[in-house]
Amino acid sequence: MRVLQAILVRLFTTAVTLAGVAVVVFVVIRVVPGNPIAMMLPPGATEEDVARLTALYGLDKGLWAQFGIWVAGVVQGDFGTSITTKAPVLELVLGRLPATLELSIMALVMAVVLGGAAALVGTRWRGGRVEASVDVANGMALSVPDFLWGLVLILLFGVLVPVFHISGRVTPSLDLPFTTGFYLFESLFRLRFDLWADLVAHMFMPALALAIPLAAIIGQLLKQSLKETMNLDYVTLARTKGYGEFRVILREALRNAALPTLTLVGVQFTFLIGGTVIIERLFSYEGLGNMAIDAVINRDLPLIQGIVVLFAVIFTAVNLVVDLLYAVLNPRLRHG
C-alpha cells in the first residue's frame, strides 16, 4: 500500500514538474527581444511578407493563445517547424537523439567501470598510501568539471599523443550503411568492426570527459560503503573460510554495498546528460547539445523549445525511474 501511495504521489509531482517546465520554457523564450521573422527574410522584404510569416508561425496572436497552440501541438507530438532548416522540429530532434544517448550511455559505462575499479582498489589496500592516492585522484576528478577535462583530453590524446579523433562523430568519408541513428550499436549488430572502431575513436574522449566527475563520485561513495560492509560479521566469516581479500570484496561485500551507489548514479546520470551540451560542442559531436547551441545562436525558437523540452522530459523520466526503483527496492518502504 505504502509503495503504491508513494508511486502515485511521485507520478503526480512529475506531472506538475513537466507542466512547470512547459511554462518556464515558454515564458523565457517569449522574452526574446529580437524579431526572428525579420531575420528569416532577405533584405527588402515587404510588410506583407513579414505579416504573412508572422501569421504562419502564430506569432501575431496573444501570449495565452500562443501558449495554447504550442502546448496542444506538443501533446500531439507536433513541436512546430524549425525556422532555420524549415524541417519539423520533432524530426530534427529525434534524428540527433540517438547520438546523444549513445554518448551518455558510453560515458555512464566508463564512469561505472572507472569508479568501481577505484573503489575496489581503495578498499583492497585501505588505510595506506594506495587508498590515499585514490582519495587524492577522486578529489581532483570531482573538483574539475567535464568541460575542462575535455580540453585536457584534447591536449593529451588529440595533440600530444594523437590517438583519438578530436572532432565529429564518425570520419565523414566513410560509407555508412546504417538505418537507425544508433551507429555504435548498429555497427556491432552488423559486425562492421571497422566502423565500430572509428566511432569509438571519435566518442572516446567526449565520453571520458563526461565520465571523470561521475567516476569520482561513484568511487568515493562505493569505497565508503564497501569499507563499512567489510567490518560486518558475515564478511569476517567469509574471510575466516580462507577466501582471498579481493574475492571477499567482490563476492560478499559488493552486493550489499552497491545499493546507495546505484541510487546516486541514477540522480547523477541526469547531470551527465546535461553535460553533453557543452561537451558535444567542444568535440563538434553531432548530437542534440551541439544542435541546441546552434539553435540558440540562430534564434531558432521552435527548435530551442523542442530541445529544451526533450531534455527536461529525459531528466524527469530518469529521476522518476530512479525514485520508483528506490521505492520498490528499499526494504523500509516495502515492509512499512
Binding site: V16, V31, G275, F315
Partner: peptide, 23 residues
C-alpha cells in the same frame, strides 16, 4: 516545486538559452 522544475533543465543549456534571450 520550483526546485523540482529547475532540476529538470540541463544547466548549461538553460544558461545559454537565457543569455540568448537577454543578449
Amino acid at each position: 516545486r520550483f526546485i523540482d522544475i529547475w532540476m529538470a533543465f540541463p544547466p548549461v543549456l538553460f544558461s545559454i538559452l537565457l543569455i540568448a534571450v537577454m543578449g
